[in-house]
Design a protein around this nucleic acid. Structure first.
Length: 367
DNA sequence: AACCGATGCGCG
DNA sequence: AAAGCGCGCATCGGTT
């Protein structure tokens, strides 16, 4: 796979070099160097502020597209080509896990970072169980929004979960002003909006996101209005924001998850407790608590499921490996424990329904 | 040679 | 009044 990427990178570089003006000093341009790339664009009369994909896509000139594609592919290759090199033992990759690697209580992972292996490119398909075994994967569906509903005690949000609804779909429909289906790209984009607004994103950023992802153009005041409209759908979220704002004014740097685990947030540019961190920390942190509670209970019960092997976790997801014939039992065990953890920590049965856990059994980590 | 901040992007 | 959050990693270009 990396060999194919290699070829693709080489041809994309050639293409970009052909379109580009000659380099005044070197043989060819280094498109990985923002300074050089900006200089090349400047020679054809384009002053570009940065080399982000999203920015390059605004330009008509073929060089913009060529450079963007080259950088994308090159970046993917870099991330993946050395991913597991020299990190095998017995046919397995053994990353370094840091159980409390993140300030919120999440785990992090290095060498390699398993948690950021790209999706949808086939790389996760390379993560496979041993002969005659399967991977059993379970994830906490929309966990941060469930935590949010519990923390803010928002009746409308709870109602959506109680009826098995989909918050992202609601938001997507509100933004697109039409019916949106589960597989539509609008839903994916609405996730970002939901998270953004929940954790204190401003109208400006919200406006930019709406433009970029929905081709919805609005003035700043219209963006403010839309933001309020979405927050109005869940009034207690707004109240919660107001409460946390007061805590910031009072100089309260301490946040707590629903399990009572503390985090001291960073100061903002004024030296006051960061408002957005105060909002995010208990939510991300409680979700992390839930996953870890579940992991602890898996361990406590492990003697009855010794064939099951923990493979990895990714913040709201647990992957186990077991013998193919044990898949059903293992899947039930895993999802039951995750569901119990959600219910025990959040204290709302409607947040821990059947749909709170999505379980799949597969021959690889891909999808 | 080792380290560092900035930039940009992968994941949740 | 206003404010998305949390990570790791490759690369560049400069400093120690």
């Amino acid at each position: 796979m990396t060999g194919e990427l290699d070829d693709k990178v080489a041809s994309l570089k050639k293409k970009a070099d052909e379109i580009a003006p000659p380099h005044p000093r070197e043989e060819t341009w280094n498109w990985n160097s923002p300074r050089q790339a900006k200089e090349a664009f400047s020679l054809i009369g384009l002053q570009i502020p940065d080399l982000k994909r999203e920015n390059l896509s605004k330009y008509e000139h073929p060089l913009a597209k060529a450079v963007s594609e080259y950088r994308d592919t090159r970046s993917l290759l870099s991330q993946v080509c050395k991913w597991a090199a020299g990190r095998y033992r017995d046919g397995r990759v053994h990353p370094q896990w840091n159980p409390a690697g993140a300030a919120t209580g999440r785990a992090s992972c290095t060498s390699p970072n398993v948690q950021s292996l790209p999706k949808g490119e086939g790389f996760r398909g390379c993560i496979r169980p041993g002969e005659g075994h399967v991977l059993v994967k379970a994830d906490l569906s929309q966990i941060e929004l469930r935590v949010l509903a519990a923390i803010a005690e928002d009746e409308n949000m709870l109602k959506v979960f109680r009826s098995g609804g989909d918050i992202h779909l609601n938001t997507a429909e509100a933004l697109a002003s039409r019916k949106v289906k589960k597989g539509d790209p609008e839903r994916q984009k609405a996730k970002a909006v939901n998270f953004g607004l929940s954790f204190g994103m401003g109208a400006k950023k919200f406006k930019e996101m709406a433009e970029r992802d929905y081709e919805v153009r609005m003035t700043l005041s219209e963006a403010k209005e839309a933001k309020h409209k979405l927050l109005d759908a869940y009034p207690r979220i707004g109240h919660w924001h107001a409460r946390e704002g007061l805590e910031c004014e009072r100089g309260n740097f301490i946040t707590e998850t629903l399990m009572g685990r503390r985090r001291v947030v960073e100061p903002d540019y004024q030296g006051k407790p960061s408002f957005t961190e105060r909002l995010n920390a208990p939510v991300q942190g409680t979700a992390a608590d839930i996953l870890k509670l579940a992991l602890a209970r898996l361990w406590e019960n492990w003697s009855e499921h010794q064939g099951a092997l923990p493979i990895l976790t990714v913040h709201d997801e647990v992957v186990l490996e077991c013998a193919a014939e044990d898949a059903k039992v293992t899947a039930r065990w895993l999802s039951g424990i995750l569901r119990g953890a959600v219910e025990d920590v959040l204290g709302h049965p409607e947040l821990a329904g059947e749909d709170a856990i999505e379980t799949t059994t597969a021959p690889s980590w891909e999808v």
